Computed example of a mutant assay.
Amino acid sequence: KMQSLVNPKPIIKTTGPGIPEKVKFLLSKAWNLIYQVDFDIETHQGNVITNISYVKTNELDLAIDIFEDVMKTGPQYCTSKYFKIIPGKEPNKTGIATVCSLTLDGILVKNGVSTTPQYGGILETDSKQPRFIELTAYSGSSLDPHEIYIAKDMTSVSEAIKDGGRVLASLREIPYIARPAAVDVLEEVQDAGFSILKIGKPSELVYNAKVERYHVGIVAPGGLNPIAALKEHGMDVEPKAVETMTNVSEMEEF
């Protein structure tokens, strides 16, 4: 019998782009965590966003010594005094949780201040006028910019805590009309053990970074700065930024 030619099955499949796999942008993931931040600036209790970075378990003691040195000598370059040691998924790896600077966006949102995380960057501190020398927009990045900078050995945190160097920092924008409210919140945030490097004036360049009109730029140090210092000391580290939520009651502090 002759095969029906009404709907013949194609022998060769047509080639084409198909369904492209959607790139997951960092900011999409970040917003889901930002809205879960419930750290209370009065009671100093609640959940914060944490980065989890892995080191070799047999190098943990050395890692903690370097980590502690950065936290104590240059606390202004660490997002927060809180940290946590966690068991790694592999027996030869141990995790160090540090507070991610996007936690500050969560605290601002919780306290009624609209904020938009804009850039992860490298801040050069060894001049009378600190300035950003690298900026990567969160909105167009699928990886955390700070992870990339660490991988490319672009930091010098160990030098920065002594006389000047290059540290990780992030920039977010708020509407200028919200500046007084933000200043009040961020003063309490600093009392709670967090660091803020600069709150700009309306439409002012912040460390040489441009800010949208009618907005104010706020710069905070990167939560991975102590981890960057480990890499600078030749240690094998795997930084994972914007990774999970952690309650500060489970964390230690320097």
Score class of each variant (00 low, 15 high):
218 I>A: 04
136 T>G: 04
181 A>F: 04
128 K>S: 05
105 D>L: 12
239 P>L: 05
79 T>A: 12
98 T>F: 11
193 G>L: 04
98 T>Y: 08
137 A>H: 13
121 G>T: 05
93 K>H: 13
194 F>L: 14
243 E>W: 09
172 R>N: 01
84 K>T: 12
176 Y>M: 10
221 P>H: 06
126 D>N: 15
7 N>F: 13
42 E>A: 09
159 E>G: 06
175 P>R: 00
112 G>V: 09
163 D>G: 05
193 G>N: 03
191 D>A: 10
126 D>W: 04
181 A>Q: 14
82 Y>S: 05
103 T>V: 06
49 I>L: 00
152 K>G: 04
220 A>M: 13
167 V>K: 00
126 D>L: 11
44 H>S: 11
208 N>S: 13
165 G>K: 00
143 L>S: 14
232 E>Y: 12
54 Y>I: 02
34 I>Y: 02
237 V>F: 08
207 Y>W: 02
53 S>T: 11
99 V>K: 11
137 A>S: 15
247 N>A: 01
148 I>H: 06
210 K>F: 05
196 I>F: 01
166 R>W: 02
157 V>L: 00
110 K>V: 05
88 G>Q: 09
49 I>N: 00
68 E>I: 05
127 S>P: 01
148 I>N: 07
21 E>V: 12
204 E>F: 00
118 Q>V: 13
96 I>F: 02
178 A>Q: 15
72 K>S: 10
188 E>L: 12
167 V>H: 00
243 E>M: 10
164 G>P: 00
96 I>Y: 04
119 Y>S: 09
64 I>R: 07
38 D>N: 15
129 Q>Y: 07
66 I>F: 06
232 E>V: 03
243 E>V: 03
188 E>G: 05
199 I>R: 07
84 K>R: 13
108 L>T: 04
99 V>I: 15
103 T>R: 12
46 G>H: 02
225 N>G: 05
94 T>V: 15
185 V>Q: 03
169 A>F: 02
78 C>G: 06
27 L>R: 02
62 L>P: 03
33 L>E: 05
16 G>K: 04
86 I>P: 11
157 V>I: 07
30 A>M: 09
241 A>G: 11
32 N>T: 01
143 L>E: 12
156 S>E: 03
207 Y>H: 04
97 A>V: 06
146 H>T: 14
33 L>H: 04
150 I>F: 13
183 V>N: 06
194 F>I: 05
150 I>D: 06
81 K>T: 10
192 A>N: 03
75 P>K: 11
54 Y>F: 15
37 V>C: 08
230 L>V: 06
140 G>K: 13
33 L>Y: 08
